[in-house]
């Protein structure tokens, strides 16, 4: 665990979102300390991805405020990266072009500088040998690293991860969390991770939160989460451990 700054980089207060009268998020409050890894758990359909999209400004909340370093979320995109569950890579662009895309479109760097920065990002994530490949020609794990390289190439202060381990086997899930911890240390960003993988997330995170019925039911450190007497928190943790054992077998 790292030493956390007392000043939150991201503050969410009273966030509310509903679709066709069905309340998904109901007055969600959360503060994300600078430099931390915060994991958010919750059942399927609990609104975790909706919450993350509200943080990124992809969905407009019906009520509440999301502030990034005291600014409204709308103006922060150049300092915020987002890793999609599906990776959302452009399959008509090569690996190098995918990573260079945000630099090409959002900076005034020279073409050579952009290619150099993209190449450096690929080297950092061990993908430089596949620079000329298309996303469909590399493995699922590599695609995940490529998506992370694209998210990190602009040196964002905050990276949002939407179920980064979806569709991966248990060793793959552990590797992704190890990768997040390692790159957080190297690139010095704050991470918010929405995930179902409780054991891996507890090992990797500085703080965790449990989203239940549209509200934050628990928020604290991983040790506080495992020691919690709250029946929902306990059952959630237990069920995930049980699922993990089945997976391992």
């Amino acid at each position: 665990m790292t030493e956390l700054s007392p000043h939150p980089i991201l503050t969410v207060s009273g966030l509310r979102k509903e679709f066709s009268g069905h309340v998904i998020l109901d007055t969600v409050d959360l503060a994300v300390p600078r430099g931390s890894i915060v994991s958010i758990f919750g059942r399927s359909g609990a609104g975790k991805s909706v919450f993350l999209k509200c943080l990124a400004g992809l969905l407009a909340p019906d009520a509440g405020v999301v502030r990034f370093e005291r600014e409204s979320i709308g103006g922060i995109r150049s300092r915020c990266g987002y890793l999609f569950q599906s990776n959302a890579l452009f399959d008509s662009l090569t690996v190098l072009e995918n990573v260079a895309l945000p630099l090409e479109q959002t900076t005034r760097l020279a073409r050579n500088d952009i290619l150099q920065a993209a190449h450096d990002a690929l080297i950092s994530l061990g993908l430089d040998a596949f620079a000329d490949h298309f996303p469909a020609q590399i493995s699922g794990g590599m695609q995940k690293r490529l998506a992370l390289a694209r998210a990190l190439v602009t040196h964002p202060h905050l990276v949002l991860f939407d179920e980064p381990t979806a569709g991966l086997d248990p060793p793959g899930r552990t590797a992704v969390f190890e990768m997040i911890v390692e790159y957080r240390r190297r690139f010095d960003f704050t991470a918010v991770i929405v995930t179902h993988d409780v054991p891996e997330a507890l090992a990797a995170s500085d703080r965790v939160a449990l989203l239940d019925e549209g509200r934050i039911r628990f928020e604290g450190t991983p040790s506080e989460f495992t020691a919690s007497d709250d029946c929902i928190v306990k059952s959630f943790g237990d069920s995930n451990v049980a699922i993990r054992r089945e997976d391992d077998n």
Partner: peptide, 12 residues
């Protein structure tokens, strides 16, 4: 495939 959302999050 969320590529349009990805563009938005990249500030494009």
């Amino acid at each position: 495939s969320e590529q349009i959302d990805a563009l938005t999050t990249m500030g494009i």
